[in-house]
Structures are given as structure tokens and as C-alpha cells.
Design a binder for these strands. Structure first.
Ligand code: FES
Ligand code: FES
Lengths: 155, 155
DNA sequence: TATAACTGATACTATATTTATATCAATTAG
DNA sequence: CTAATTGATATAAATATAGTATCAGTTATA
């Protein structure tokens, strides 16, 4: 059971890179090469994030992507919703036809409780928090520039 | 994003039915018809549960399946693991090659924290608990015998 | 003892989702 | 002018989920 798909994964990592280099444009190619993601696939992910106003882009030479939104305002929950749809623990446990009044169904309650817990947890993990954790590990922040750098934050 | 697949869904509902009729054998056909599940698909699910010692079966006429294990010992978490594999929020955020020391990775920690929370929640929801909730709603327990009965517990 | 109602086992098909690639037009720094 | 870049979109490949079909073996019961 995989909770985060590649798209969400790539989105998080791309945002971390953009977050570490805020103020300058970073090209899709640079991100793809440095973090070993499929280039065109990543571009799709980046475009989706533009549509959701998480990042902005500049075309042409020296162009690329830049983080606009406050990293603390970007939760993993939002990313999951963008790339995987709303978190739903299960569709209705029984057939839709016979579940006329969901609000009083005991199973439904149990399921919705978990849904809330899961959503809460994911909401609390923001790009901002992750960035600060990265900075704490690696104060000078060259980490995300090279493969060696990336490796360093995982040790 | 769907957390419970059909197999897990069917497994839970089948176990609830078997739990409500503990002591007697219930055929796959009976379960399939009453809960509107695809017969052969359900059989596969039931066989998987036999392999994991959750239920037992009897072949031939008047045969079927019976709940063996204590319903309180069967958590939704275990069912998810059986039918969807272990809950993993994400595989390693970066490439495996460069993640030599996972235990000290900040991202890893965040991810594992959520993994624990999710697992805990799912572990606490047991077939036993669900059965008691059903009984509280419908003391005489004819609920699971008919479509109308099923409908009654959802109101 | 024949038969119909069952499970065991397994192979197969269909559908949906995820992941990845390819192409071409438009933009822009140098 | 040109190479590096994004925008947009179409398509393919890979994987996972969902569902079907078949046949052999078991057993209650008529
Ligand atoms: S299972 Fe559908 S509302 Fe309860
Ligand atoms: S991302 Fe792989 S161990 Fe941190």
C-alpha cells in the first residue's frame, strides 16, 4: 500500500529544491538531473503546481521555476489532493443504493474519524517544516545542489 | 486517493457477516448475494483469509466459511496488510543509492511518524469493535441477513 | 450411490491508474 | 539568430485493481 505516488513525491522534492533556492529560477532540467526524476514527467508535475499557484515560471533561456507561496502554507495534504485526489479512506462500505442515511452509520463514523486523523497529520507536514529540518541538518544549504549534497542530508 | 481497495472492503464486510453468524458455516454464495459482491472475486478474498488463519472452511453441501479468530484480534490494519501490502507512506524520498543512512534522515522521520499514526488508527479498528457497534444499532442481529437489514444499519 | 451444493486452485480477461515519453509551438537571454 | 527554456497536449508503457471462468475434489442428502 503506497500512500504517496511518484507525482506527490516528485512535487515535494521539487518544492524543497525551489524552497532552498528561493528568489532565483531553477529549470526543470536542473531539478530532474539533480534529483534523478524523469524530465518530462517532472515538467507535468511542475505545470500542475503552477496551475495551483504554488510556483511561478519564466520562459526562455535562464528561465525556470520559482517558489512563490509561503512554504509554511504548503502542506503535504494539499499536494496529495492535487496529485492523488481527496483522501478517502473508503467509499461507502455497503452499496450506495442502500446507504440512504450515512450520517448515522457506525461504520461510516469510524471511517471518517480515521480520515480526519490522516488528513490532520498530512496537513501538519508542510514544505516549510521540511525545509527547516533540512537547514538544521545542513546549515550552509549547498545540500540540494549536487548528488553528494543530497546524499549528505540523508546521513 | 483510495485507502481501502475492494478486496479489503469485501474482506471487512464478509468478516462482519461471519462474525454475526459465528458457529455456523456461511457459503460464499450467501455472502456474495446478500452483500452484492462478485462471487468469484469474493471467493479469492475468502481463500486468502483462510491462508492467514482468520477463518476456516468446510467443503461440500452445507459447507462454507466460519470465523475462527477472536474478532477483537482482527484489526483493519492486518486486513490492509494482507490485501494491499504493508502501509508505506512513501518509498525513500530520494534515490535509494544515495540514502545510505536512513535512520538519521529528517524526511524519513517525518514520514515514519505519519506511518505510525496511520497504522495505529487502523489497528484500533477491529472487527470486534465494528460488530459491537452493529449490535448496538440492531440488537436482534437480523441486520446482515437481508438487503433491507443491511440498509437498516446504515440509517 | 447419484447429484447438487459446496470449496480449492489456478488461469485468464478487463479496466483503471500510475508512470513515462514524445512533439511542437512560443518565449527569451545573449 | 540560436540555444535554452516553458506551455500544451497526445500517446505509450507499466503496473495494479477488479472481475470472470473452469475444473477438480468434497460432502450432505435424497
Ligand atoms: S456503509 Fe454506507 S453509510 Fe454506512
Ligand atoms: S530520503 Fe531517503 S533516507 Fe531520507
Amino acid at each position: 500500500m503506497k500512500v504517496l505516488t511518484k507525482k506527490t513525491d516528485y512535487a515535494i522534492r521539487a518544492l524543497l529544491m525551489l524552497g532552498a533556492k528561493r528568489g532565483s529560477y531553477v529549470s526543470a532540467k536542473a531539478i530532474a538531473v539533480e534529483q534523478d526524476m524523469p524530465y518530462q514527467f517532472l515538467r507535468g508535475v511542475l505545470q500542475e503546481m503552477i496551475r495551483h499557484d504554488l510556483i511561478v515560471s519564466k520562459e526562455g533561456v535562464q528561465g525556470g521555476f520559482m517558489l512563490e507561496k509561503d512554504p509554511d502554507e504548503i502542506g503535504v495534504k494539499q499536494l496529495i489532493e492535487i496529485f492523488q485526489g481527496t483522501v478517502q479512506v473508503s467509499e461507502c462500505m455497503f452499496r450506495k443504493q442502500i446507504c440512504t442515511n450515512r450520517s448515522r452509520c457506525v461504520l461510516r463514523h469510524e471511517i471518517m474519524r480515521i480520515e480526519h486523523v490522516v488528513n490532520n497529520e498530512f496537513e501538519q507536514v508542510t514544505i516549510g517544516k521540511l525545509l527547516r529540518k533540512l537547514q538544521a541538518t545542513n546549515t550552509l544549504m549547498p545540500a540540494l545542489n549536487t548528488v553528494e549534497g543530497l546524499a549528505s542530508i540523508t546521513q
